[in-house]
Amino acid sequence: MTTTVRPGTPQRPSAVRLGLHRATIELKGFFRERDAVAFTFAMPAVILALLGSIFDGVYPGSDVTSAQYLAPSMIAAGVASTTFINLGTGIAADRDDGTLRRLRGAPMPPSAYFIGKILMALVVTVGETVLLLGIAVLAFDLSLPTDPVRWLTFGWVFLLGATACALTGIAASSLAGSARSAGAVMNLPYLVLAFISGVFYTPVGQLPEPLLTVGSLFPLKWMAQGFRSVFLPDSILPQEVVPSWEPGRIALVLAAWCIGGMVLCLTTFRWRGRRSR
């Protein structure tokens, strides 16, 4: 037979290469599902447009309108939605429709799957962020900072926040028993957190103490605070919980969630659905 292979040759492709491959496949799959694309992008944008036009007024002691205050927080909520919800429901669907089973049957290093998912979520999140920034600038006169230091802050808050939410979303996908329940399972914590993190309810300093305490345990509150520190003047600080942007604490909490999310992923991830084990 000519099919005999010398041991060790040829090599299976590396996890990174396969991860990049998966990312293109994931992106194709995502963008071809038109209605899902439309609603994923539209949800935070519509909420920003609605809440931004409902509330008006300027915060005392500053020239920040309530719409401008809302915008950076909505960007944080947008990041959470395109990472946490997108990955949580997407992976639950993969588990349900046999995608995971088929991939497990192939010689795919598990990390390739996660690299693909996270790269896909990152691309979608960047798109969402640009969309929300566009709405904030065009409709609500948010001015973009010129100071590169602020953009640097934007960069690390974005990366840490998106990673923390992505990993938590991957871990949370295992909570959903099926693809059909996943939407509800993922949206409940998301909506609750959006309220108690001072995104839908502004300004954050006005939240009742117990809710604030709970909200402060999760990454959304800190990501929103980080983005406000990028786009809002310091004159708005009296509306915050403490009159400081607390960059050190933001970095600490988001990094802790990245690590915790990673541990959760590694310990709770299920390749198989509850129906077939």
Partner: peptide, 8 residues
Amino acid sequence: DSGDLGEL
């Protein structure tokens, strides 16, 4: 049975 790959 399988139901994956729909959009590819």
